[in-house]
Amino acid sequence: MEKRIKERKVLTGEQERHLLYQMKLIRRFEEKSAEQYTKEKIRGFLHLYIGEEAVAVGVTQALSAEDYVLSTYREHGHALARNMDPGSIMAEMYGKQEGCSKGRGGSMHLFDATFNFYGGNAIVAGHLPMAVGMALASKKQQKKNITCCFFGEGAAAEGEFHEAMNLAALWQVPALFICENNLYAMGTALKYTHAMQYIEKKGVGYGIDSSAVDGMDLIAVSKAANDAVKYIKTNNKPYFLVCNTYRFRPHSMFDAELYRDKKEVEEWKKKDPIPRYQQDLINKKRLSKKQIDEMDKHIEAEINKAVTLAEEGTWEPVEDLTKFVYSGQ
């Protein structure tokens, strides 16, 4: 797999280090978010992406800036992988007007039109039909971009998932559906919620070519995503990719995690995508100890800068409360 990527010259050493950088940035950003949550700087629901970094980074590297990206309420990782400014994300979670959604959305509603990042959608599966519509618009406008839609395996039980899959296949729209199967829909395990637990088979039922990949392996995810994007562009058809992954943290900050065994979590942590990829790069002599230190330092600085921006951010005046309900307000 690794060899094929090299053959295709998809990644230079610098690009590989960038992917590692992005995964580590997400990890540290999420750790800092949890910290700021316990300090009550961030309120509401906070869903951390820790453990799933290879999915956002591996898939996003396959996309171009013109592609549309839609995500869920566990979307900080996708937003960061899309190169949105960590400061604008942190400020959003603080509820400050310097946030990417002017503070109106919070953790679950990150939007940034300049990065073609369309949320931050917090009704499970509610954004799937929208993704189909965006891809339909691209097709009608004869644009070359695709629409990439992230969702969890919980969404695959919703009617909107099934309606969206049928429409995408019926209209043959350029959409990449990414199911991040982290095995738990909030606190209920896959085996208690899906009769067919190979989620990728649900795509095939609609005539959509589908596959599954080890979502803890950045190289495997990257390759699968590259292939999927190429498939969509070559065949003018949607594609469904299931990334089997795991979140190391609870569902949200309110979750006491009574539904899963600590041993299970520890087992999955052994598959942590970050040390795995880092070691891989070291073995390939693409990464030195010095580069790791520099990378970690840079990340720390970036996170600190994000927190400072959020801390120094300003509150929207209450007089503006009813803005953004209709256009032109």
Partner: peptide, 13 residues
Amino acid sequence: SGFVGAGVGAALA
């Protein structure tokens, strides 16, 4: 839900 949502997406795009 599917086609109304597709309408929302097409309008966005």
